[in-house]
Design a protein around this nucleic acid. Structure first.
Length: 892
RNA sequence: GGGCAGUUAGCUCAGUUGGUUAGAGCGCCACGUUGACAUCGUGGAGGUCGGAGGUUCGAAUCCUCUACUGCCCACCA
């Protein structure tokens, strides 16, 4: 397939839709995103790997994804263009709860079925077919964004290979003693009817109450002990009342029994140091089955555990009269009953933190049940070390603190889920109660012995138990595949700081444990996208714009550029569609710059890629700006400062190239000299081509389009596999920048006079310049054409010591005393005011420096070069002041 | 209770090791001529950098305190 060229008549405004589709197809067709497509720029093609944070298979593209994947694409495209064998591996996550909930809802709506109407296998089958049909929309959306993933390597966390990795890891950790099964208080989701990990619980401050209940002593004395609780319904499962061992108020009660109201159970008063005597009444009811602290007290003191709740959050038969009530109904009922019994002493308002299920939203229940856990401390230690010694680097670096804090206080990970959708736990129990962990059912059977019935553990694993293996399971691990050898460990990980514990930390642990290497070198944490009110974007708030709508309105390049421009290093981003408009406008500007040059290309001519030896000042200036920009991009990208990189390119393209350079070379392009014209177009094109190439990682579609329209390209050529331009330090020319800078200032000064004095744009202006030296005279004379073109200057009289004309507006530019004779147009009062203002400003500056220079401390302690610089400035200000004062005097 | 960010023009934000006339985009005002672009061009107005104190010859930049805003962590019954 040859390069698909646009029609000769280029549209006046850039039209992204067709262009994007065309190039997306072209890239795909040619397989440019396969690792071996990268250009060979050296003897070796070093690998560069990025693993996409796999979005949920149920997910659709959000602004967060746009940011995250655009950043990855910038890294990946730049690496590819720099000659790396580049792999960006895409895929999706099976997202246990999220997907199961979604498909349950779907089945209910489409077929009126609940999961109880189906067998386990049938239900899982339905989820798979849902996934095949509706899942992975986000993958297509990422393609629209321009993400240069190797789409043929797309993986899914429930793929065969990844599942094998999960099983392997489970078995290895079990054999190592790092996975165990145990009765613990875990976070239970009554809606999801599953256990959750600590990370899946979101704590929020809630206005609750502290109820004080009097529990009567059983000795018939009529005395009672008051306990305070936020959860009255759990009292039905109380097995003790605890006080602090040193609390003298209660020391005589320890060891006595209490008759638990409503239940009529005798329970002991015990002493335990965990009780805070200053809180509430200083006495705590102990409910080991429903509170983590109580559980531990119970363990220490050998107390029984009474489970008074069912998995769905209703009260269990153990709750006696309250059985069957919802937990919150039961709370009201218990309070009412206690009040009726005269045992409710006090109700205090109480602000406390309550955990809610991340996915299903309801208050989680601390619940005693048997679950599988991973012992984390042994895994955390090496992972902590890897970050401390810099084998893994975080950007911005401050996230290492958060990481360290979590890792040093890490708790065991509850990995079993009472769901159907996910990796089945590879554990079986025999009829006689033996537990067998094995890679396959056959292995388990063999271990159980012939004819012994075994049943598989019904639970599945936490989704993150497959995610934490993602960097290597996607490459074929545990097999030592070629891919694994070639692309692991990976280079950069780009993700949000909200999953630093869920995912990043665990990947580092898993990588080190199972491959002996950290899974990536650099982690870039993006900011969180917020709306203009600073709120997190969410579906429920409806404040999240649809990225696909943004793409169709402003173009994918516009969206990318817009978000990159406002995405500083790791700061949260307030997103406004206006920034996408800025990106779109930038694309349009690039397009029109090209349209203009395109109009001057003659198809029969081959344009030189390298500039001719004889360059004008403005050419050298532009080359210098271009190479400075390339250097700025290199520097910014090395520090993951994406917005600095694109800003540098935005400025060099718009301000330097379009506003100044193109305007400056127009006379040469419109002149009758075909040779000059050819050279001018050639040089401009060569420079523009580099800008376009530098911009490609940021704005891939428009740059690819322009790149192809620019010159004839061989079949199968693409900018995305062309070398990225590097900065040529020999082209960075400070003298040229300063000299052209003077010409620019002169032009701006003249435009300024014209605007302020309301001189008709068409009227040419006369300039009389008193130059400080011959070099300045020469500089101006060599650039007269530009003054004429860009400031509409008709004639220039310049010499060293040139006398000021009568009736002129005067100003000083880089030491040049500039007079614009405007007989009849001078408003003496306004002019006087203007000069006074300028004089006052300069005087202020000069005085400031004089104060500095007469400060003994400054002269003694400041570096010589700083002092020298100040002296130079002062000299300059004084010279300018003299000229302005003289001009002021001439006005009378 | 602990920790982390942020506070700079009307708005959204840059300002990298302390020395710049504190920048950009949007918005605003004025004017639009020259064969790319009104999704544009030219010119302009506009901030003393949350507050207080300190270090320093010199602070938006470093330190201390403080006020707001947001986030994270924590077994406050």
């Amino acid at each position: 397939m040859s390069s698909p060229l646009s029609p000769d008549l280029l549209p006046k405004a850039f039209e992204p839709t067709g262009v994007e589709q065309r190039w997306a197809e072209y890239w795909h067709l040619h397989g440019f995103f396969h690792p071996d497509s990268a250009p060979v720029l050296a003897d070796e093609r070093p690998p560069f790997t990025v693993m996409i944070p796999p979005p949920n298979v149920t997910g659709i593209l959000t602004m967060g994804h746009v940011l995250n994947n655009t950043l990855q694409d910038v890294l990946v495209r730049r690496a590819r263009m720099s000659g790396h064998e580049t792999l960006w591996l895409p895929g999706t996550d099976h997202a246990g709860i999220a997907t199961q909930v979604k498909v349950e809802r779907f089945l209910k709506e489409s077929e009126g079925l609940t999961k109880h109407d189906l067998t386990r296998d049938e239900f899982v089958g339905r989820v798979w077919s849902w996934k095949e049909r509706y899942g992975g929309i986000i993958i297509e959306q990422l393609k629209k964004l321009g993400a240069s993933c190797d789409w043929e390597r797309e993986r899914f966390t429930l793929d065969e290979g990844l599942s094998a990795a999960v099983t392997e890891v489970f078995v290895r950790l079990y054999e190592k003693g790092l996975i165990y099964k145990g009765y613990r208080i875990i976070n239970w989701s009554p809606l999801g009817k599953t256990a959750l990990s600590d990370e899946e619980v979101i704590h929020r401050e809630v206005e609750g109450h502290l109820w004080h209940f009097a529990y009567p002593l059983s000795d018939g004395s009529g005395r009672s002990i008051t306990v305070a609780t936020t959860r009255p319904e759990t009292m039905l499962g109380d097995v003790a009342v605890a006080v602090h061992p040193d609390d003298e108020r209660y020391s005589d009660l320890v060891g006595q029994m209490v008759r638990l109201p409503l239940v009529d159970r005798l329970i002991p008063i015990v002493a335990d140091a965990f009780v805070d005597p200053a809180f509430g009444s200083g006495a705590v009811k102990i409910t080991p089955a429903h509170d983590p602290n109580d559980f531990e007290v119970g363990q220490r003191l050998g107390l029984p555990q009474i489970v008074v709740m069912n998995p769905d959050g209703t009260m269990s038969p153990e709750a006696g009269a309250y059985a069957g009530l919802d937990r919150f109904e039961a709370r009201k009922a218990v309070v009412a009953a206690m009040q009726d019994a005269g045992r409710l002493i006090l109700i205090e308002p109480h602000l406390h933190s309550v955990g809610f299920a991340e996915r299903t939203g309801e208050a989680i229940e601390p619940y005693l049940s048997e679950q599988w856990f991973v012992k984390m401390a042994p895994l955390a230690e090496p992972a902590l070390q890897a970050v401390r010694d810099g084998r893994v680097r975080f950007h911005p670096e401050r996230w290492t603190k958060t990481y360290e804090h979590w890792m040093t206080n890490i708790r065991d990970w509850c990995i079993s889920r009472q769901l159907l959708w996910g990796h089945r736990i590879p554990a079986w129990t025999t009829a006689d109660g033996r537990l067998i962990v094995a890679r396959t059912e056959a292995e388990a059977q063999a271990e159980a012995g012939d004819g012994v019935a075994i049943t598989r553990d019904p639970d599945v694993l936490d989704t993150w138990f497959s995610s934490w293996l993602w960097p290597f399971s996607t490459l074929g691990w545990p097999e030592q595949t070629d891919d694994l050898k070639a692309f692991y460990p990976t280079n950069d990980l780009v993700t949000g700081p909200d999953i630093i514990f869920f995912w990043v930390a665990r990947m580092i642990m898993a990588g080190l444990e199972f491959t002996g290497e950290a899974p990536f070198r650099d982690v870039y944490f993006t900011g969180i996208i917020r709306d203009m009110l600073g709120r997190k974007m969410s579906k429920s708030l409806g404040n999240s714009p649809d990225p696909l709508a943004l793409i169709s309105t402003w173009g994918a390049d516009g969206l990318r550029a817009g978000i990159l421009l406002i995405a500083p290093q790791g700061q949260d981003i307030r997103f406004d569609e206006a920034s996408v408009e800025v990106g779109r406008n930038f694309a349009n500007k690039l397009w029109n710059a090209f349209r203009f040059l395109h109009g001057h290309i003659e198809s029969s001519v081959t344009y030189a890629a390298e500039p001719p030896a004889e360059l004008e000042l403005v050419d050298r200036w532009m080359l210098s700006r271009l190479n400075s920009a390339a250097a700025a991009v290199e520097g910014a990208m090395a520090k993951y400062r994406f917005n600095d990189a694109i800003s540098a390119l935005y400025d060099v393209s718009w301000r330097d190239f379009c506003d100044w350079y193109i305007e400056a070379i127009k006379p040469r392009l419109f002149a009758d000299d075909p040779e000059a014209k050819r050279r001018t177009v050639g040089l401009a094109l060569a420079m523009y081509e580099k800008i376009v190439a530098l911009l490609h990682p940021f704005m891939p579609f428009i740059t690819e389009e322009i790149w192809h329209l620019m010159r004839p390209r061989p079949d199968g050529a693409s900018l995305c596999i062309s070398p990225v331009p590097t900065a040529d330090p020999s082209r960075i020319d400070e003298v040229a920048e300063a000299s052209w800078g003077t010409i620019q200032s002169l032009i701006v000064a003249v435009r300024n006079v014209r605007a302020e004095r309301n001189v008709a744009p068409s009227r040419p202006m006369e300039l009389v310049i008193n130059a400080p030296d011959d070099a300045a005279v020469e500089l101006v004379q060599q650039n007269l054409g530009y003054l004429e073109r860009l400031a509409r200057v008709g004639s220039v009289t310049i010499s060293v010591g040139e006398a000021a004309p009568e009736g002129a507006v005067s100003t000083v530019v880089d030491g040049l005393e500039v007079h614009v004779p405007l007989a009849g147009l001078i408003d003496v009062a306004a002019e006087t005011a203007r000069l006074d203002k300028e004089i006052a400003k300069l005087t202020g500056l000069a005085d400031g420096i004089e104060r500095k220079l007469s400060n003994a401390g400054f002269v003694a302690k400041a570096p010589a070069e700083v002092i020298e610089k100040e002296r130079d400035k002062l000299t300059g200000y004084r010279a300018d002041l003299d000229k302005l004062t003289a001009a002021r005097a001439r006005l009378g």
